[in-house]
Every structure is written in C-alpha cells, then in structure tokens.
Amino acid sequence: MGVLLPSGARVFIAGHRGLVGSAIARRLGAEGYDVVVRSRQELDLRDGPATHAFLRECSPDAVVLAAATVGGIMANATYPVDFLEDNLRIQLSVITGSHRAGVRRLLFLGSSCIYPKLAEQPIREDSLLTGPLEPTNQPYAIAKIAGIEQVNAYRRQHGRSYVSAMPTNLYGPGDNFDLESSHVLPALIRRFHEARIADAPEVVLWGTGTPRREFLHVDDLAAACLTVLRHYDADGPINVGSGTDLTIRELAGTVAAVIGYNGQISFDPARPDGTPRKLMDGSRIRELGWEPRISLRDGVAATYQWWLDAGSPTGRTVAAATR
C-alpha cells in the first residue's frame, strides 16, 4: 500500500487549540502539510449545519478530529451531560460533514477509556465492547465508542477511508492544569509546584496510589497520528501508547522529584481510584514503524518548563477543554 496522505495535502485539524490538536498541527505543519484550523469563535463544531458548510467550502483532503470535551475524574463526575452530549454533537458534525464534503481521509481520536474496566492487560483493540466500562468516565467513553462506530459505519456503507486511533494517557505542552478539570499528570505538576513554593510539609492525593497508568508525550502521539494518516486503513481502532506503565504512587514520586518537592506524599483511600490498570497493546502501530521517543521523566520536565514559561496558566474550563 502506498502513502495514503502525501505531503502537501490540505488537512483540517478540529480542536487545534487543545493538547492533542495543537501537537498534531505542529507536526503536520513541519512535515509540509497545508494545515487548516478554525477557533471555536469562528466555528462551533457542535453546530452541524455550520460545520458542514465550512467543510464543503474548505474542501480538505483529510480531517483530524481531535476536538473534545475532556477532563479527569472530578470533571467527569461533575459534568456528565457535557461529556456525553458535547462529544456526540462534535463527532456527528465533523464526521458526517466530512463525508458530505467528499473528504477522502479522516482520523478520529478516541481514548483508552473506551475499553472495559477489567480488560485483559495489555489491552488489545478487540477488547472493545467486551465488558462494563469504568463508571467514573462512562458518559465520555460511550460518546467516544459512538464515534468509533460512526467511523466504521462510513467505512462499511460508503467505502470511506476513515480510521480511529485510541491514545493512552497524554501530557505535554498545551495541557490543562486546572485542578477541577485536569487529568492526573498536569494536576500533579501543579500540586507539587504549589506545595514547593508554599514549603508545604505534605501533599495528599486521591485514591490509594496503586492503580497503574501508561503515559505518552503528546509530541510522540502527533508522530503516531502522522504514521496512521499515511499508512493505516483498516476497520476498528488502533492503539497508541508508550508500552510501559507505573503506579500513581510512582508517578507522583517522579513528578515530585522533577519539580524539587521534598515533602511527604500521602494518599486518601476514601477517594476513587478509577480503573485498576490501563496498559495498551501497541503491536499494530509498531508494525507500521512508529516508536515513542520521549521518556516520562524528560517529558515531565519539559512540560513543567512549558507551564512555567507560559506564566503557570491554570487551563481552560471543562466546557471548552480542547475545542
């Protein structure tokens, strides 16, 4: 099979201001692609007719759907309607609009939370829909599963070269550091930074510290997405992960060491842990020649420095997390 998306092609990045979309836009731009973006003020992706009209006018060769409403355990519990309905609206607008506009290639970005809570580890792509989801992020996961099924349906019914990629837990420049809506790694960076500045003797974290998580720098994901756009065309999702995991307690120790916090790290077992373990089986993406390049410690250090250089922003509200 030849290259499915040659250099110079026009690519619309939906969600270019978010963690994932901004990294993909940087990578595709550096590789010579004609990257097209629109801010939320210019185009609300939840608005189907407006999105369809834009895609007809823009006429991109490919679309990368990285726009989503995202967040951690607290945000998922607080805003389940937003996580379900916003993501369904965005996906219906962009995927349907791409088909109607004759877009040849589309990459839909999902999440590892689509897989069952107790899926066999490492998680293979065929684990999808084989068991109950983790309750703390079920609305978001169901929306993402719907997006995967929509992509598959367009492949089957209309022969579209549309594909889905499922990244593991991501971090990097452009992340959301708001403690009410962020994911675990940026939240830890902020917590330990503030504790170091305040000379706090202790930082108490949610849960037991025993769940295991896999992390991938967003620039490594962007490289993987380019590989998928160029070379992957098959039914079902393709996993993208680092291939290694660690406990939340170990992660906290790594982040604290990078930031220079030397106080005590404690855990509150009365708070939820979430899924016990989420390690992705990345065999398919590695068969295409992709490998992650950025170590966790180096990635955390670079992300922390980016946050400091940006003036320690707290991030966006949950309703506009990646649009």
Rank of each mutant, 00 (worst) to 15 (best):
V11P: 03
F12N: 05
E57D: 10
R46Y: 10
A62C: 10
A50T: 08
P80A: 02
G21A: 08
Y33S: 09
F83A: 01
A50W: 03
P49Y: 05
G18I: 06
G71N: 04
T69V: 13
L45I: 12
I24F: 01
V81H: 13
L43I: 07
A66R: 02
I73Y: 04
E31T: 14
P60F: 05
A14S: 14
F54N: 04
C58N: 12
Y33K: 12
Y79D: 09
L65V: 08
R10V: 01
L28R: 03
R17I: 13
V20P: 00
V35F: 07
P49R: 10
A30E: 15
F54I: 07
L5M: 09
G72D: 00
A68C: 09
E42P: 00
Y79W: 14
D61Y: 02
T51W: 11
T78N: 06
A75Y: 00
A62I: 09
L55Q: 06
G32Q: 12
A23S: 15
V70P: 01
A53D: 06
I13F: 03
A66K: 06
A77H: 03
A75L: 01
L65A: 04
G21L: 10
R56V: 15
I13D: 00
D44Q: 02
F83C: 02
G32H: 13
Y33Q: 11
S39H: 11
